[in-house]
Simulated scan of single mutants.
Amino acid sequence: MNNTFKTVASSYISISELMLPSHTNFSGKIHGGYILSLLDQIAFACASKFSGNYCVTASVDTVNFLKPIEVGELVTMKASVNYVGKSSMIIGIRVEAENIQTGIVKHCNSSYFTMVAKDKQGNSVPVPGLIISNLKEVRRFCNCLKQIALKKERDLHEEIFDYSSIETIESLKKYNVSIELN
């Protein structure tokens, strides 16, 4: 069993990047895929810093795009470990964009990545325990517990749900679908 513990603060990572025209999508806003790439990088850095090991992305649990990001804005991503398991960590990331002329900052994205610590052979390795130092960290940890429970419930539902039942097929008719099974 791993006896070391580290603070949430020891995992803090922050990166800032100016958004360029080359980062845009077809509507002239910053491309979500580009932001996802940056999110994955900071999640890796945060998890690796906390665990002291190479880390891989196990899942992208939540990515909520709240507001569009414009060319010329300074994007800052702040990440911390919100939860630890045996070899896994849930990294919370907040994305803000600042209009550098006006100084106005907007919250653009909140994301949660599950990362797993690995050794040089690719085997999962234990991560340090988490020292929770304030109520904000307690809230974040508890929210991760809820997220994990919901994921388990969803997976169980997937295993036992009968997609081929007449009741299921009939219930779909209230949605915007045309059922034409062969």
Rank of each mutant, 00 (worst) to 15 (best):
I179L: 11
I179H: 10
D162A: 14
S14P: 00
V60E: 11
V177P: 03
F50K: 01
C142S: 11
A58R: 12
G129C: 02
E180F: 08
T24D: 05
C46D: 00
I30Y: 03
A47V: 11
I13N: 01
Q147M: 15
T57R: 10
S111E: 08
N64W: 01
I15L: 04
G85R: 12
T102Y: 07
Y54W: 08
V125C: 05
K78F: 06
K152H: 06
V60F: 07
R154M: 10
G52M: 01
V71A: 15
L156V: 09
S164E: 14
N53D: 04
G33L: 10
E170H: 07
E153D: 05
T76F: 03
A58I: 07
D61I: 00
N143K: 13
L39G: 04
Q147K: 14
V95A: 06
I13R: 06
N176A: 13
F26E: 12
I132M: 00
Y34W: 10
T76W: 07
E153A: 14
G122W: 03
L172Y: 04
I166A: 15
K49F: 06
G32K: 14
Y112R: 06
N109S: 11
G52F: 03
M19V: 05
S165N: 12
V127W: 00
I91H: 00
I35Q: 05
D162S: 15
N2W: 01
V116S: 12
V177M: 08
S178D: 10
V63S: 01
S48T: 07
S111I: 07
C55S: 08
K174F: 06
S10G: 03
K152Y: 08
V60K: 05
G33Y: 12
S133R: 04
K118W: 00
E96R: 02
T76E: 06
L74F: 12
E70A: 14
N109R: 02
D61T: 02
H31W: 09
Y112M: 11
V127Y: 01
S110R: 00
I90C: 04
V116W: 12
V8T: 06
I179P: 14
K173A: 08
N143P: 05
I90A: 10
N134K: 09
E17W: 07
T24Y: 13
G32F: 06
V8H: 09
L145F: 04
I160H: 09
K106I: 14
M77N: 03
V138M: 03
P21Y: 15
L39D: 02
L156Q: 10
L20Y: 13
L66K: 15
S124G: 11
Y34R: 11
I132W: 02
G28D: 01
V127L: 01
S87F: 08
G103N: 15
A117V: 01
L74N: 13
H157C: 09
A45I: 14
N82G: 05
F26M: 13
L135H: 06
I148F: 08
L150T: 05
E98N: 03
K173R: 05
E98Y: 04
Y163A: 08
C142N: 11
R139Y: 08
L150E: 09
K29H: 11
G103L: 15
K6T: 09
S14Y: 01
Q101K: 15
L39A: 02
R139V: 09
S87W: 10
